[in-house]
Amino acid sequence: MCGALLVRNPKGGLDRPIALYSTALILLLLANIFPFLTLEIGGRQEITTLFGASQAMYNAGMGELAVVVFLTSILAPALMMTSSLYVLLAVRFRKSLPGVRVLLSWIGHLEPWVMLDVFMLGVLVAFVKLGNMATMYTGNSLYAFMGLIVVFAAASSSFDTHLLWHKLGIPGRKT
C-alpha cells in the first residue's frame, strides 16, 4: 500500500554474495595498507592512509569524532563483510555454527553506519578544497577504495536476508 519494496529474489543464490563479499574484504584490506592520498605543499609531502583520517581527529583531541570516523569508514564495513560472509558460508555449507542468528540480525542494524560512499564524496570535496593550495596525488588505496564501494554495493544488494532467514528456519521446527 505504501509502495515500499518488500521482497525481491536476487540472482545467483548464495554463491554470488559470497564471492562479492570476499572480494570486498580483500579490497578493504588493500585500501588500508597503501597510502590513500599524498599532499605536496612547499616541497614537503604528507602521506595519509585511510586510518589516518580518524587518527588525525584523535590527535586533535576529538576522540568522539575519531570513533565516529573509524566506525563508519573502517569498522562497520569490516564487521558487516565478515559477519555476512560467516552467515553465508554457514548456510551455504549447512554447518550449524554458533552465533549465526545473532550476527544475521545485527547485519541489518549495521548497514546504515557503513558510509563508504559518503566518505568517497568527502574525498572529492577535500580534493577540490586543497586544489589551489597544494598538489594532491592519489594513492593505490584510493583505487582499492573506489573498487570497494562498487563491489560492496553489489554484494549487499545480492545479500538476501529473507532467503537466509528462511533457510535458517525456526529452531525446533522443521521448514
Binding site: L39, T48, A53, A60, V69, G122, V125, A126, L130, M136
Partner: peptide, 14 residues
Amino acid sequence: MVDIFVVALLAALV
C-alpha cells in the same frame, strides 16, 4: 556525514 569526513581528511593531510 560528508562534512565530518572532509574535516578528518583535511586534518590528516594538511
